[in-house]
Simulated assay, not measured.
Amino acid sequence: MQENLTEWGKNIETVTLPRWDELPDIELYMDQVIGLVGRYLSPILTTQKQALLTKSMVNNYVKLELIPAPVKKKYTRVHLAFLIAITLLKQVLTIPEIKTGIIYQGRASGIQKAYNIFCETQENTISIVGKQAQGLETKGLFTQKIELEYLIVTAACTSLATKLLAEKSIELTENLSIAKEEDTHEL
């Protein structure tokens, strides 16, 4: 089990999210957006049993005013940034909580800066749990004061990172239990 957890930790420790300037600066169709979000997030959300993002989800996010409506059925980097953040955050927060957090962070920092801060914070927290999974010493998640305007994003990203570690540990424990049961039955 420890070998698998260490390997997972090595893989997830170096995960990166695309920054604002790395997102496509062209208009995209729904299928392209869904494909890109899936590609960007698949290294992080590896154990999903359902689609990370669907057309219905995107349409619901528009109806709930979580993301702006597309123009002539085309989506921009603004949509991509929102959908990346929402897809990750919905792993640990409710849609109303995400909406409140996105509105707050967007007003506090502006959409572009808020998105880049989210990406950096998420990468940092995932890197820490990746190191913990490898059995490496870490300085912890909250070693310095967090400014109030970044408290929401930091807490949400930390929740997701630790949830990923818990899920992977549970998955490996279940696999180990199944393997032991199979060995017992063979005897």
Rank of each mutant, 00 (worst) to 15 (best):
I178T: 14
I152R: 07
E7P: 04
T100F: 12
E97M: 15
F142P: 04
K10L: 06
L66I: 03
F82V: 07
E120G: 09
L66C: 11
F118W: 02
K55D: 02
L41K: 07
V62I: 15
Y40G: 08
K113N: 11
P96H: 00
V78T: 08
D25G: 12
L83W: 07
Q144F: 06
S56T: 15
K180V: 14
N60K: 13
E147R: 14
P96S: 01
Y104T: 15
V58A: 02
A81K: 02
C157S: 15
K10Y: 00
I12P: 04
C119Y: 00
I178Y: 09
K55H: 02
W8P: 05
G106P: 07
V62R: 09
I111T: 11
I26E: 08
E167N: 15
T46N: 08
S169E: 00
Q134L: 06
T121N: 10
I117K: 13
I84W: 04
G110R: 04
Y115D: 00
L52F: 06
E65P: 11
L88V: 01
P70R: 02
T100L: 14
A114N: 12
L187E: 08
D183W: 05
T100H: 14
V71G: 04
Y29N: 14
S42C: 08
D25F: 12
N124A: 14
L93F: 03
V33F: 01
K73C: 00
I146S: 05
H79I: 09
Y40S: 09
K49V: 11
I152W: 05
E13F: 02
H79S: 09
I67V: 15
E3T: 05
T184V: 09
G38V: 06
I12D: 06
G130V: 00
P68F: 00
T125A: 12
L148E: 05
I152G: 00
W8R: 08
A161N: 10
N59T: 10
L28G: 12
D21M: 09
T94W: 07
T162W: 02
P70W: 00
Q48Y: 05
K131I: 02
L93T: 06
L136Q: 13
E123G: 11
L164P: 05
K63Y: 04
I12E: 10
N59K: 10
K131E: 01
N11G: 06
L5M: 14
I102A: 15
W20V: 06
T162V: 01
G130P: 00
L164D: 03
L53P: 05
V33L: 04
T162K: 03
L165G: 06
Q2P: 03
I86Y: 01
D25Y: 08
E7Y: 09
P68W: 03
P70S: 00
L165Y: 07
T138V: 09
Q50I: 07
S169D: 03
S109Q: 15
Y150S: 08
